[in-house]
Design a protein around this nucleic acid. Sequence first.
DNA 1: CCGGGCAGTGAATCGGGTTCAAAATCCGGA
DNA 2: TCCGGATTTTGAACCCGATTCACTGCCCGG
Lengths: 251, 251
Amino acid sequence: MGTKERRERERAAREQRFLQAARTQIREQGLLALQMAPVARACDYATGTLYQHFASKEDLLLALCAEQAAKRVEILLRAGRWEANSRDRMFALVTGDMLFALASPDHFRLTQYVFTEVVWRAASECRRQAVLDAHEPIGALVGGIVHDAISCGDLDARGRAPLELAIGQWSMTIGMHTLVHAEGVLEFFHLHEPYPMLLRHVQLHLNGLGWKPLLDPFDEQRLQEKIDQVCATLYPDLERAGPVTIAGTGD
Amino acid sequence: MGTKERRERERAAREQRFLQAARTQIREQGLLALQMAPVARACDYATGTLYQHFASKEDLLLALCAEQAAKRVEILLRAGRWEANSRDRMFALVTGDMLFALASPDHFRLTQYVFTEVVWRAASECRRQAVLDAHEPIGALVGGIVHDAISCGDLDARGRAPLELAIGQWSMTIGMHTLVHAEGVLEFFHLHEPYPMLLRHVQLHLNGLGWKPLLDPFDEQRLQEKIDQVCATLYPDLERAGPVTIAGTGD
DNA sequence: CCGGGCAGTGAATCGGGTTCAAAATCCGGA
DNA sequence: TCCGGATTTTGAACCCGATTCACTGCCCGG
């Protein structure tokens, strides 16, 4: 009988509705104002029902994070599938991440919050695992690109594992997301256009690794072309207000 | 009369006691378990008195963050004063930050939490400003080092402002702190010894910038010497369990 | 020595996450 | 179709802890 199965499906659908409602509430009122009862009410369920899906408020936040992470992964996988040299694919990965961050600022605010000791600890073990699992493909993807680079001679591993070589890019990207969302910090130091700077520094770092073919990221023209190419080829759907421009005056 | 002045001094002293008590409570029970009433009680004051110093719990957290940031700045300033070439000073800065992070893991967990939208927004405006002000010297310091590098020819600015050139290092460092404190993430990707990797990637990035004198960070011997030199010269008091080692098998 | 004001107090208030006993619903078997 | 036990849903009550505020008593200038 398909009864059990149908139940299961309905339950999953309801969970989606809850997550959707939470997302809406966060978008409209901010993370700070998220409350459990209104989320349940918005879906025409009692508070208690919500707790059959999520062990706590933090648990719900992790679930939200995992769900959005899946979307992010989907974007990033495009870079992995791209028919281009290894360096361009690695760069495309960071670019995709940047575009996703610009398109979904809420996701990174949430992620930042979720990985905080206080929140992380307050969620259930299995939910934590789900968040990690949701991010796993990114590691595999990055590892794969580095591996390709090494085996085709674009990159000399110097005896290091793929992820050890990629962690510089990774932490730089995460750090920039953090800075962008740390309200007031960049303005305080008179820094603007953080993401274009990230792209430039990623190229610098790739050069430092000796990842061929080298590219001079201070050659505005070349760098801009590269970015435009990646955006147009892989992420035509993610360009919002306008294209990303490297420009900047440096004054 | 000195009455007003004395009052002021006593008030400041009390604030210190509150912060100290909060720090102790966090160290012993974790950030999650911090409660206002016990902090007040621990200092033999009523809850209400605590609120004469801090507008909210989050406000207290920001104050704690600002206070610890001052300590961090103190450490980092050593790198600025060091009689060494610009590149070594920049590297020493990141190394100092790493040592401070290892010595005060609580500080970075707190900082990560504090810069979160939810917490940041829940603190008072002037407290937020105080946190930013506490970090300002770091920007000045970094800017100064980059500036020196440019003017003595170690680094070609290519028309960029000092902080625009340093933001790569900065975001990489922040990102690594974030990764280190995101429980379970590094283990999940089988990455160990994050800070040695950070130091290596910082050197790689400096090479990418063409910041002279270049150094091959895959030359274990050389890199280790550099690290040892910095630690011994500038941070002899911060080496805890043992020296930082680059080693790593790369398998 | 007196009185006004100012800091300190901690019990009461308030808000919101979480629980759980009762009510409703479902479902397989007669 | 109807019945009774199992399962799910409900939402008001509970609990915890941050925050407030009416009251207390101390300090200081006159």
